[in-house]
Simulated scan of single mutants.
Amino acid sequence: MLFAIYGTLQLILGVVYWIMIIHIIMSWLINFQVLNLHQPIVGQVWTGLNRLLEPIYQPIRRVMPDTHPLDLAPLVAFVALIAIRSFILPAAFGLV
């Protein structure tokens, strides 16, 4: 039972990890004008990713100081996700 919960949490964190990777790469491509948000599919994917990840980024943005041109919330969330997935979750389930 414990391994089923651990496996499910690892799966969820793995999916969030790849969604964040896609979001970060897509933001770079949009900023360097490789992708255009006026294209329907690009705009829909971008809006969907923002809606998925905004509940994760918003609390981080409230705590962090404002670095207006540079949004560090995705970086902080990504590092926290890696820490949870690699260190905290295995320690919590006694798999260290």
Score class of each variant (00 low, 15 high):
residue 85 R to K: 13
residue 59 P to S: 07
residue 63 V to D: 02
residue 49 L to F: 10
residue 82 I to D: 03
residue 83 A to Q: 02
residue 31 N to T: 05
residue 82 I to T: 06
residue 71 D to C: 07
residue 44 Q to G: 06
residue 47 T to L: 11
residue 40 P to S: 07
residue 30 I to D: 06
residue 32 F to I: 02
residue 61 R to S: 07
residue 51 R to S: 11
residue 45 V to H: 03
residue 36 N to P: 01
residue 84 I to V: 15
residue 58 Q to P: 00
residue 77 A to G: 06
residue 71 D to W: 12
residue 72 L to G: 04
residue 65 P to F: 09
residue 36 N to A: 07
residue 33 Q to S: 12
residue 70 L to P: 00
residue 53 L to D: 03
residue 84 I to P: 00
residue 85 R to F: 14
residue 47 T to R: 13
residue 32 F to L: 10
residue 49 L to C: 07
residue 53 L to S: 06
residue 32 F to S: 06
residue 80 A to T: 14
residue 41 I to V: 15
residue 74 P to V: 08
residue 47 T to Y: 07
residue 45 V to W: 05
residue 85 R to N: 15
residue 67 T to Q: 05
residue 50 N to H: 14
residue 53 L to R: 04
residue 63 V to N: 01
residue 82 I to Y: 13
residue 62 R to T: 09
residue 74 P to F: 08
residue 63 V to C: 02
residue 42 V to N: 05
residue 57 Y to C: 02
residue 85 R to M: 09
residue 64 M to G: 05
residue 60 I to H: 08
residue 73 A to I: 04
residue 78 F to C: 03
residue 46 W to L: 00
residue 47 T to A: 13
residue 48 G to E: 01
residue 45 V to L: 13
residue 65 P to M: 06
residue 77 A to N: 04
residue 50 N to Y: 11
residue 80 A to L: 15
residue 31 N to L: 10
residue 34 V to S: 05
residue 39 Q to M: 08
residue 35 L to R: 02
residue 71 D to F: 12
residue 53 L to M: 13
residue 71 D to I: 02
residue 57 Y to I: 02
residue 32 F to E: 04
residue 66 D to A: 09
residue 69 P to R: 09
residue 44 Q to F: 07
residue 57 Y to Q: 03
residue 46 W to Q: 05
residue 30 I to Q: 08
residue 46 W to H: 09
residue 30 I to Y: 11
residue 50 N to W: 05
residue 78 F to I: 03
residue 61 R to P: 01
residue 40 P to Y: 07
residue 85 R to Q: 14
residue 75 L to C: 06
residue 81 L to Y: 07
residue 61 R to G: 04
residue 39 Q to G: 00
residue 72 L to K: 01
residue 46 W to E: 01
residue 31 N to V: 01
residue 84 I to L: 15
residue 80 A to M: 14
residue 43 G to A: 08
residue 77 A to R: 02
residue 66 D to E: 09
residue 48 G to T: 10
residue 38 H to V: 06
residue 77 A to P: 08
residue 30 I to L: 15
residue 83 A to F: 15
residue 43 G to F: 09
residue 31 N to W: 11
residue 49 L to I: 05
residue 33 Q to H: 14
residue 60 I to F: 10
residue 32 F to P: 00
residue 52 L to Y: 02
residue 80 A to H: 04
residue 46 W to G: 01
residue 55 P to Y: 11
residue 79 V to T: 12
residue 33 Q to D: 13
residue 71 D to T: 02
residue 64 M to A: 11
residue 59 P to Q: 06
residue 68 H to N: 07
residue 71 D to Y: 12
residue 32 F to V: 01
residue 59 P to Y: 10
residue 46 W to P: 00
residue 85 R to I: 00
residue 83 A to M: 14
residue 68 H to L: 07
residue 52 L to W: 04
residue 37 L to M: 14
residue 80 A to Y: 04
residue 38 H to E: 10
residue 61 R to V: 01
residue 34 V to W: 14
residue 53 L to Q: 07
residue 72 L to M: 13
residue 77 A to S: 10
residue 72 L to E: 05
residue 34 V to R: 13
residue 44 Q to T: 10
residue 60 I to D: 01
residue 48 G to I: 03
